[in-house]
Design a protein around this nucleic acid. Structure first.
Length: 117
DNA sequence: TCCTTGACCATTA
DNA sequence: ATAATGGCCAAGG
């Protein structure tokens, strides 16, 4: 029995779910997303998934390399669009690099915990 | 099967 | 800070 177009492998589904849960104005690395999806060492799969499901509406702009840089080559269409989208939602991009210490997703959790104390 | 290709990553120089 | 290196691992040919 074959279901229609909705047969997404569970690993992909997990990754998509994590990506969708990145808060607006925050960013996460491919590797971190993989870990949160329960798939450590699968950073490359995250990139692959983003490409395969590019037709879906995803906050793909919030996904960066582990060093905080945009993965696309500087000056490419993808690079420019990602940069614009990030700036739109309040993320500072300087020379293709984002300060993970300020905009990293984990940092967002820290802030929440701080409020409780 | 084997080989190549990536929206990657950590380490080293 | 940048660059080379080796490692990683699913997909597709």
């Amino acid at each position: 029995m074959k279901s229609g177009m909705a047969d997404i492998p569970p690993e992909h589904a997990c990754i998509l779910r994590v990506i969708r849960s990145i808060p607006r104005g925050r960013v996460a690395s491919y590797g971190e997303i993989a870990r949160r999806a329960g798939l450590p060492r699968h950073a490359r799969l995250v990139g692959r998934v983003l490409g395969v499901y590019s037709a879906l509406k995803l906050p793909w702009q919030r996904v960066l390399r582990s060093d905080g840089r945009i993965a696309f080559p500087k000056g490419s269409p993808g690079y420019r669009q990602q940069r614009a989208l990030l700036i739109d939602e309040g993320v500072a991009v300087r020379n293709g690099r984002i300060d993970l210490g300020r905009f990293g997703w984990q940092r967002d959790l820290d802030a929440e915990l701080w409020k409780m104390a």
